[in-house]
Structures are given as structure tokens and as C-alpha cells.
Design a binder for these strands. Structure first.
Lengths: 223, 223
DNA sequence: CGTAATGTTGAGCGCATTCAAGCCGGGTGG
DNA sequence: CCACCCGGCTTGAATGCGCTCAACATTACG
């Protein structure tokens, strides 16, 4: 899924994949407490991962789409510490971690690749921490939309139109907001002509305005 | 520093370490934008890592102490994306990442070890996301104190007494609070007899009460 | 077609923030 | 040695953003 792989490297990936697995919308790929065996590369579909505090509250830690890898949390303790839930019917490649380690000992580029995937996740989470720690509701939602649409665009989808696979509550959990706040903020964006929102269908009318909310530049206005 | 290493594995670690480096209090081990070459194992001292948004705000992403590793953020793009600042005079082992990859291809246990370190960081950040996304000020500070004292205790320090190496502002940045809120919350804990706070010196008088704030159990009270 | 899940909107409230003033402690230089 | 200064910390008062609670609208789905 990442670019720049030679043919032999693609063969390698085939070697890693023990099986394919389909996950129905609403069901779990793995759950908190489950034994860790494999990483999963998403082929199609859309997931959320979430952790739970002891007293029931839970926090969505990310949304994953085709080409992304889930399951890294399980490596430390041989048990998963979060749930991975399919938000639409999905198909994943099951890659047993033993096999990954074995092959990545033999193939430098694969080893490097695995390291980068883990580091990328760490850096992504830094960004989420910045969002949760210091942004206001509008900034959070704008950041979220820009990030989603950018990742979709990289997969050949529209730059300006997207369908949300998750509920307002799930967006809120991820962004550290209540669902009502998410809804209200969407409405405010719509009033200002920045987006068009019809339930889960979102059309971005003014990307610059969104960027300006995230990173207000003195001069820039609503071009 | 982690337990259960054989003699030969310890030799390996020696092989990885290119040099030691001392970092004076207040100065940077590495900074955002700097080329990535190495991971750093902290021998002594105390660090914070922080990321900055484009418009100046910054977010402390973690505090690291002896035995912990910093620099993982640099692997993805070959550049660091955060700053690592020494909060007291420190000494680190410089471990060139090329060397780490080379050796971990040869030694299974080292490879596994590297993977676990990265996965542990991912899981740690999940916990921080839960904190930032869903906890109130008191819960955040209580969680923070319990985590700090637990890590210190694992290093042979007191279970109930600690010296904060960071300012209220840095604590606040990490916890997604303003420094005044941190200060007020400390005072509230002190009023309630849960802790004794004198500037950076903190003595925990009632660990159970702290745990109860983090994870309120119906029956449990201020034993 | 009816029911439950999801989403929107309003009113009032509360927690954390903002702004501001004062305190404490440590280091420096007169 | 003491006065001063400055960064860090504490505390107070007022504000406001996001939350809570509640009613209603809309959509999905059996």
C-alpha cells in the first residue's frame, strides 16, 4: 500500500499475509484483552480504534482506512489494549507478527518499513495530543475534516466531498467533545458557508477558511 | 535498563551505543526539524518532549526519566518532529538507528525489544488521549501524580514523595490545562488532605483518595 | 409503516479560562 | 549582608466555551 515497493518486496508482503478476513460493519477485528497475534492491513472498509477507562468512558483513538495498519498496540504486552471496530463492511490482511519479525530480519527494506509504520503512528498521536490539549471546538473539527479529506484524496477520492463513516458521538469522542458540540459546530460552519452538511454527507465549500480556522494567519480572510 | 537481559544482550547494547552525551538543564537533546540519526536512552536526568503547532502554541507530549527512550518520532521522515528538552542535567546513550536496525536483524531478542519500546509508546499515548479527551482537571492531575510516582517507585524512589522537575505551566501543557488550573487543583488536593505541596516538593498523603478521583468506585471513600 | 437510532437545536449551567494582583524563593550585585 | 529583581507560583473575580438536560426532527431499518 505505501509506494516504492519493488516486485520482490510485494512478494514478501504476500508471504506475510496468512489470510484475509472480512469484518462486518459493527463487529470487532480485535478487542481489548484479546491475545495479540497479528497486525492487520486494511484492504477495504473503515475502522475506529478505541480505548476504555475502567469506569466505562471510552475514547476513540483513531479512524483507519484502506492501506493503514491496526494492531500495533498489542505488541508490548502480547495483549490488545483497545478495540478495533469496523464502521463499514471491511476486509483486512492478517499478518502474523512472528512472520513479520522473521521476514523483516531478512529484508532490510521491510524492517525499515515496519519501523516507519510504528513511528508514523507515534507522530500521528502527537498531533492528536496537540489537538486535544490546546485547540477549541472549531479548530478541532476543522483539523479533523482537513485530515480526513486529505487522506481520502490520497486514495483517489474527492478533495471537497466526503461521507462520514462515523456518528457524531464517535467524532466527539475522538475530538474530546460532546456530540451536541460537534453537531453545533457543523451547523456553524454551514451557516458561514464553509461546508455543506447533510447528515453524514459533507461537502467542503471553502478549504481555505477551514485552514484559516486551524491556523489563523493575520492577513488571510475568507477568500 | 529493562529487566531480563542476558549477558550477551548487554554486550549488544554496548555495541549499539556510539557515545554518551550530557545535556545541560534547559538545553535540547534534539529539536523539531533536526535530522534524525539516533535514539537516545536516558541514563540520568529528566526530559520533556513537546510538539508545536504552526502558530506558536505548544504541547508537552511526555516526560521521560532514566531508562526510557526518546527520539522515536524521527524514524518516519528522517527528521525529528518534536523537541526534547532536559529539565535537569542529564546524560544519555546515543544509539545510531542504523546500528540498531543492523543488530536487531541479527538478534531476535533485540528486535523484539525495539518493537516493544515503540508499541509501549503508542499505548502510553492512548492513555494520554483518554486523559485529554475525557477527564476533568482533578482526574487529570491525580492520574499524572499517580503515574509519576509509580514510575519513580519502580526506580527505587519513594512511593509517596516526589520532586517535580517541571513547572506548573509544563504540567498544564501536558494535561491540557492552564497553569492556574494546575495550581488551584494542587491547592484543592492539599485542602482535602490528599497531598502536601510545597512548590515542587509533593508528598502524597492519601494514595487511595487519588485513585478514587481517577476511578470513582461507588462504595470507596476517603479511607 | 412503525420503531429505534441518530442528529439538530434551545436554554441554562458549571468548569476551566482569562485577566489581574500579590506572594514566595533564589540568585545577584551593590 | 541585605536589597533588589525576576521567574515561578498562588489566589481572586469575572467571563465564556462547551456541557447538560430536554424536546424535537430525521433517517435507517426491520
Amino acid at each position: 500500500m505505501p509506494l516504492g515497493l519493488s516486485e520482490e518486496e510485494l512478494d514478501l508482503i504476500d508471504d506475510m499475509v496468512a489470510a484475509r478476513r472480512t469484518v462486518k460493519r459493527g463487529s470487532l477485528l480485535f478487542r481489548n484483552g484479546e491475545k495479540f497475534t497479528s497486525l492487520y492491513a486494511i484492504r477495504t472498509g473503515f475502522f475506529k480504534t478505541c480505548v476504555a477507562s475502567e469506569d466505562g468512558r471510552d475514547q476513540v483513538t483513531g479512524f483507519q482506512m484502506a492501506g493503514e495498519v491496526v494492531g500495533l498496540d498489542g505488541i508490548v504486552n502480547d495483549y490488545h489494549t483497545c478495540d478495533a471496530v469496523a464502521l463499514e463492511d471491511a476486509e483486512v490482511c492478517v499478518m502474523p507478527f512472528d512472520r513479520i519479525e522473521e521476514l523483516s530480519r531478512a529484508v532490510n527494506s521491510l524492517q525499515r518499513h515496519v519501523h516507519k509504520i510504528m513511528s508514523r503512528e507515534i507522530v500521528r498521536e502527537h498531533g492528536v495530543m496537540l489537538l486535544l490539549g490546546s485547540m477549541r471546538a472549531e479548530e478541532r473539527l476543522a483539523t479533523f475534516l482537513l485530515n480526513l479529506v486529505q487522506r481520502l484524496h490520497a486514495r483517489g477520492f474527492s478533495q471537497s466531498e466526503l461521507i462520514l463513516r462515523m456518528t457524531r458521538e464517535e467524532i466527539g469522542s475522538f475530538l474530546g467533545l460532546k456530540l451536541e458540540t460537534v453537531s453545533r459546530t457543523f451547523s456553524r460552519f454551514a451557516e458561514e458557508g464553509i461546508v455543506e452538511v447533510k447528515q453524514r454527507h459533507v461537502r467542503i465549500l471553502n478549504t481555505d477558511a477551514l485552514k484559516d480556522i486551524v491556523n489563523p494567519k493575520s492577513g488571510a480572510g475568507t477568500a
